[in-house]
């Protein structure tokens, strides 16, 4: 089955950080996201802990990942393709099925597990 993942996850894709620096997607590090969010006027990084990973009811190609998001520990579930990569703090790209991710995108990838802390975005508080 063809992947419908966005093109920027394909190995070699050029990503622009908030300070203008260009990096390949496979070379991104935790610090790149943190520093970009610090520069951003609107976005801030949240820590989203994986609480549960289940197969989707609707399609075998999808998984439902439940996160505990931010300091308020809001419960958020997202349905994603098994090969969809999340960025885990201090570890890098991780997906429910890293073999598929590597096969389809050539993106080096680890196995996403319960307890992993992923980088997510939220709006900066306007106060």
């Amino acid at each position: 089955a063809p992947s419908s993942l966005p093109p920027y996850f394909i190995k070699g894709s050029i990503i622009q950080l908030a300070d203008g620096e260009l990096k390949r997607v496979e070379d991104l590090r935790t610090e790149d996201f943190i520093q970009s969010a610090e520069i951003s006027s609107e976005l801030k990084i949240d820590s989203s802990t994986v609480e549960r990973i289940e197969g989707s009811q609707t399609s075998a190609n999808f998984a439902v990942v439940q996160f505990s998001v931010g300091e308020h520990r809001s419960q958020v579930s997202v349905e994603v393709l098994l090969e969809y990569p999340f960025f885990v703090f201090g570890q890098g790209w991780s997906s429910c099925c890293p073999d598929r991710t590597t096969q389809l995108l050539e993106l080096p990838c680890s196995k996403l597990s319960v307890g992993d802390v992923c980088i997510s975005l939220t709006l900066k508080n306007l106060k």
Binding site: I15, Q16, F86, S120
Partner: peptide, 19 residues
């Protein structure tokens, strides 16, 4: 060659939660 912004790569979670 297309260039993608860094914030496309990580999910936006916790919609409209504040305070």
């Amino acid at each position: 060659v297309p260039v993608f912004p860094w914030h496309s790569l990580v999910p936006f979670l916790e919609p409209s939660q504040s305070g």
